[in-house]
Design a protein around this nucleic acid. Structure first.
Lengths: 224, 224
DNA sequence: GTCTATAAACAGATAGAC
DNA sequence: GTCTATCTGTTTATAGAC
């Protein structure tokens, strides 16, 4: 029973760098930038404090590297949702399928991806206290995905893709999904569980699916 | 130009306690528990570090006191929404009005209450890293309000108030509201503004209102 | 009750052996 | 590249004057 858990010793020489990033992502996400000490991170990575300065120039350099790693993870996840040269589907029904498909993939990343367990807490802290990492995440990932959803949503409902109403409506759909991740402790507790089961995640997806579908029906009637 | 801004000097002797709590709430919310130093808090409150130990026994005692203060704020805000001996409205229309009324009050607290500027960031940090403060906030405020909304929702749609489906649907409605607060930086930036205007807040409320109404229509048709 | 001064532990950064 | 040892500043907590 050590007081510091050496979770993942860096076996290969060149892997020290990525092991440090992985453990830093975990500890920054868990305790925040100020809460996680460099000694703690180094111990968890199975190396020493000096290696942080050597590889990243210091603690803030390590944090920067974590931001870049997260941005890369997100780029991969969103790259699957946004084919570069895709043609916009024409029919309203196709647009609706496309929208719920994107949100399904987001849900899969948020709840079922092993990477997200590292990335999500880190991102959430960045959102609460935006720094340069937030910049990279926002403009690299959040805005492109949101913009794309706005185009699809406006196509399905007949509104203006860049209107505040469409932007906010799309945010409300993304928001309810993210909340289940952010407020997971409160939600799972209210359900009487310690953590989400696979069934819970399916139920969450169904609820969001219903919400989107309900809202699209109204919007299609109300607009244009 | 001091490096530490003495925001609120404690003039009255007994007010030192509450001034410390107020400034600690602000700094804990802004920088987190580890990020905010006791010297910084004491300076902001116009007093000295030793007074924190004297009044609260130490830094963690001050944090505990902040949690209690937030729970009290929330109890006041939710006390307005939940009259103790209220009779349940009978008609489905009345139930729906009651639901959107509660969410409107939550929105008012989240976006327009001067107290919420202190309380919300603190709560969000607690949600990300639940401790004993989260316990007080959850069982004192979150669960009662959620439970009450579930009863209203189930009444309006004909479902079981304690079913997972109703619980999750209600969370999705609360979640989209909270997200506009949590992700405010991302949202306002996407709207092209530095911060939310009064019009933005009205627009957000309208979007959520539409979502709730759309979902209630579907649920009423689909269930029972 | 409020303050100054200080103690003891801790942080991040760095020098230098290997 | 990796490590130990150490430097310098800051942290919380506390002792004691007033």
């Amino acid at each position: 029973m050590d007081k510091t858990t050496k979770a993942a010793p860096a076996l290969s020489p060149e892997n020290t760098r990525e092991t440090l990033i992985r453990e830093a992502l975990r500890l920054f996400g868990d305790k925040g930038f100020d809460g996680a000490s460099t000694r703690e991170i180094a111990d968890a990575a199975g190396t020493n404090v000096a290696s942080i300065a050597y590889h990243f120039g210091g603690k803030s350099g390590l944090h920067r590297a974590c931001g870049e790693a997260v941005a890369k993870m997100l780029a991969n996840a969103s790259g699957q949702t946004a084919a570069p040269h895709e043609a916009l589907p024409i029919s309203s029904e196709q647009l609706r399928l496309r929208i719920s498909d994107i949100l399904k993939r987001m849900a899969a990343f948020l709840f079922s991806s092993p990477q997200s367990d590292l990335a999500v807490p880190f991102i959430l802290r960045e959102m609460a206290h935006p720094g340069e990492a937030f910049e990279a995440i926002y403009s690299g990932m959040m805005e492109p995905v949101h913009k794309r959803l706005c185009v699809l949503w406006a196509g399905a409902t007949g509104g203006d893709p860049e209107s505040d109403e469409v932007k906010l409506t799309v945010f409300s759909m993304i928001g309810q999904l993210l909340y289940f991740r952010i407020g997971a402790r409160a939600v799972s507790r209210r359900l009487g569980r310690e953590t989400f089961s696979e069934q819970d995640i399916t139920a969450i997806r169904n609820v969001i699916e219903s919400n989107i579908s309900a809202r699209l029906n109204i919007a299609a009637k109300g607009d244009a």
